[in-house]
Design a protein around this nucleic acid. Structure first.
Lengths: 257, 257
DNA sequence: CGACCCATTGACGGTGGTCAAGGGCTGTGG
DNA sequence: CCACAGCCCTTGACCACCGTCAATGGGTCG
């Protein structure tokens, strides 16, 4: 099988980790203050929560969660993009998700991390010790409730991805991905369709896309080209895709009969 | 693509649903009293919880959760086996998991169910209205905590399955499945290996197996035959597999280099 | 005993993976 | 400002794994 995923090249041992403690007041300028977990909290609750948090900056390429390591932390992304993945010893990689500002991460873990996480670009995040966050639940049950909601949503997404990986063709995977990415970027309401000619920003490489969709970069490239030939999309440049006919795309994605 | 998954034939509209209210005392003879969710509760707490529960009996083949329907209930299995799945309009099916006695289910849902669920045999379960269970959290925070744990564990399993579906070969999928099923049956400790010659009971059809592993029944059958030819396993009958060489199986499953 | 269902096995074909060459973009250095 | 290197993406040729189609085998129930 594929032995070309040179994963190790992405690992930069010399990551720059600036760690300090946030205060509720400097949460104000945080990209995640009004989304995800923190949006569920009042100023006072936030003040309480920050006592068990550390702010961390990561250089692009830093692997800050290692699959199998003892699970010590939860993370909340403030800035930048993160890929979550699992790997096989021979280098095959499956990306299980992407996280950007506002995303809470670290739920997929028992005693040990069930996944690895890597900064795709310059990342800032809040790090919580699992033990102390558990303790905070006593004071802030709303937090645990919010976390359960997040976990439930992740489960829905995970099952969608299982259907995609187990049963969809290459073209269907690409079409599904484009639409789910549009939803993620809030170009369209959840469950709805983006407007025709909507512009999609893709901060991912073809390799990331392939490893997320269970394909090779060649197949990703070929499928995108085919969708372009068929007038479904336009590709002005590597990191932008225009959805010319979202309705038809959705019919392809859902294998409508 | 595959158009042969005759899903509809499994749906029996005439399900027998006997609904009554359990009491804490008749929880004593429940298969799930000392596992999963309920094991986290004292007698008193259980008594409290049962007020928002109904006991339901399901005939084999009953689809009691329908993907896309409004998510009204959580379920706790007391007896029997359940398959959870998602389908495409043309009949392709991806089984996302199996649930047996002690399993809590219904977490993978937002406002609407993200999956369907079907009784594989005679099933008894406790049904909780989502609204009232949410209310119970106020009184029993331990319950919400336990639920979060369950959800986190489900996420770990889901990501393992994504790796399997996205990146493993047919043989690797079968080997992985056999070992994870041994773990599930508690034939071996989590993360450990079963003893050589361990006997595995498989209450699944080849079709279920195929739809769970993202393969066809023919490929499942061929892969099992190959493992048998190679002396990895023995197959005394359709529903039993003997793991002759679990160590080698695990090397195949994890693609050890 | 025979019908039926499910699993197995075989033959064949297609989707997508592998290998390899070529194109486009960016940054760097002369 | 151009040349060139390097990287990533695209495209093509070929091939293999697994899906499809079909026939056979084996177990169960009427």
């Amino acid at each position: 099988m594929a032995t070309l995923h040179e994963l190790s090249e992405f690992r930069r041992p010399l990551a720059i980790n600036l760690v300090n403690r946030p205060t509720a007041s400097n949460c104000d300028d945080c990209g995640a203050r009004h989304s995800g977990l923190c949006s569920a909290l009042t100023e006072d609750e936030l003040e309480f929560l920050t006592r068990s948090a550390q702010r961390v900056s990561l250089a692009p390429g830093t692997v800050f969660v290692e699959e199998g390591d003892k699970a010590l932390y939860f993370y909340n992304i403030n800035q930048g993009n993160v890929r979550l993945f699992k790997s096989l010893p021979d280098g095959r990689r499956q990306i299980t998700g992407f996280a950007s500002a506002g995303y809470f991460l670290g739920l997929a873990a028992g005693d040990n991390n069930g996944f690895s996480a890597e900064a795709m670009d310059s990342v800032k995040l809040c790090r919580f010790s699992r033990a102390s966050l558990m303790a905070v639940f006593e004071e802030l049950p709303v937090l645990e409730h919010k976390l359960l909601e997040v976990a439930m949503h992740e489960l829905v997404l995970a099952q969608q991805q299982m259907l995609l990986l187990g049963r969809k063709t290459a073209i269907e995977r690409i079409a599904s991905f484009l639409l789910s990415w549009a939803e993620r970027l809030e170009i369209c309401p959840a469950g709805g369709l983006p407007a025709p000619n909507a512009v999609l920003k893709l901060p991912l490489s073809r390799t990331d896309l392939a490893d997320y969709l269970g394909l090779t970069i060649e197949t990703v490239s070929r499928s995108l080209s085919q969708l372009k030939r068929d007038g479904m999309i336009d590709i002005p440049n590597i990191h932008e895709i225009i959805l010319l006919r979202p309705r038809t795309l959705s019919e392809i994605a859902e294998a409508a009969v």
